[in-house]
Design a protein around this nucleic acid. Sequence first.
DNA 1: CATTATACATACAATCACGTTTGTTTGTGA
DNA 2: TCACAAACAAACGTGATTGTATGTATAATG
Lengths: 204, 204
Amino acid sequence: MVRKTKAEAEQTRQQIIDAARKVFLELGVGRASLERVAQVAGVTRGAVYWHFENKAALFYAMREESAHVFDELEQDLVSDRLANPLDAVEESLLGFFKVLETHPKVREVFEIMALRCEYVDEFAPILYEVNKPCIDFLARLCKVYGWAAERGYLRAGLDPEAMAYDTLSFATGLFNNWMIDDEADDVRRRAHAMIRSHVALRRA
Amino acid sequence: MVRKTKAEAEQTRQQIIDAARKVFLELGVGRASLERVAQVAGVTRGAVYWHFENKAALFYAMREESAHVFDELEQDLVSDRLANPLDAVEESLLGFFKVLETHPKVREVFEIMALRCEYVDEFAPILYEVNKPCIDFLARLCKVYGWAAERGYLRAGLDPEAMAYDTLSFATGLFNNWMIDDEADDVRRRAHAMIRSHVALRRA
DNA sequence: CATTATACATACAATCACGTTTGTTTGTGA
DNA sequence: TCACAAACAAACGTGATTGTATGTATAATG
């Protein structure tokens, strides 16, 4: 009972990625054996090695699935469809965490990348790929805060670039605290209010 | 040539911890074998297992060394020795990153914890111990921002608690971006300016 | 319809790291 | 000084993973 149809093969490939996500999340990337991934996927290691060269390749494939969910989101930020650019910043940040809330797969992948992966050797390059959208986000923030300043929406005396860096750090930190999700600070429930308060801080 | 003096034994223990830090940083905690740690320390696995129960215990010991470097720093925040509490916040944040710059061992431990460790099983509890100082920091920030509001140093209309959460996220994010240290954003060089700009944002 | 490459399952070999046990020397306390 | 335990080194056994090699049934292709 082998040699399945192309569609079926693609399906098993997807099953393997889904299984990898579960196993990576539970055991961490390092301790996750491809044997266990295969078990959870309902196949053998033969199938895993057929579709992916090794664990790193599987990790990259898993990541790429969720990487491009935010493309439209970033596009929104600089679309300039809102009169007040600061509203665009707010919406962009709210949208990011909304995705984390509504897309469990994406959330799990980000949790793996934040807390269940050691960035050495084959995995070290991922760190910079993960960081790349952040650099983009920073550039967009600079532009948008610049617009806000020009149009008088940014409080007088505030430097757009400085605001961009501040917002980048804020977003990064909120993301990390959101992932850890300690009951004591309850960041996950406060996230929306925090975002609004963060942006309000620089409104004219 | 065994049965060394107590002082010598303590020294080898320290050598093992130092070696662990190097190996963890290079290979990640998961891939770091105690054999390699022993080699770098100039001993055998026998010595490692004599001083530490296993890799996790060694990790905990390594961490604890650097954990209490910031105690005085947090104390400073609520010491109320500065007229303007916002200056205390600024100094506290600057002090944190100054420690990272001046204490390479501490920096390495924090880099291991941020990027070279998978928080599962025996390592999962560490995540909450790491987060505990953050909770403390948040509480202190609430108090200090409250003082600032009372004394009129906080810009009118700003909620002290909201400011505390914003600063916590900022600090967390700055720390993470500082660790990744991409040349593109150059956060590590801008850190001081970012901190000052962050605090300035809420001055009256 | 014969052939071929696909999509796996199974089997194999090799390494590696871990925990434990045993052995050895020598500080140290009585 | 004597007995004991500290502070390791060395050896042992074991299970877990990895990569590869081989087998095989069947979908695709001409």
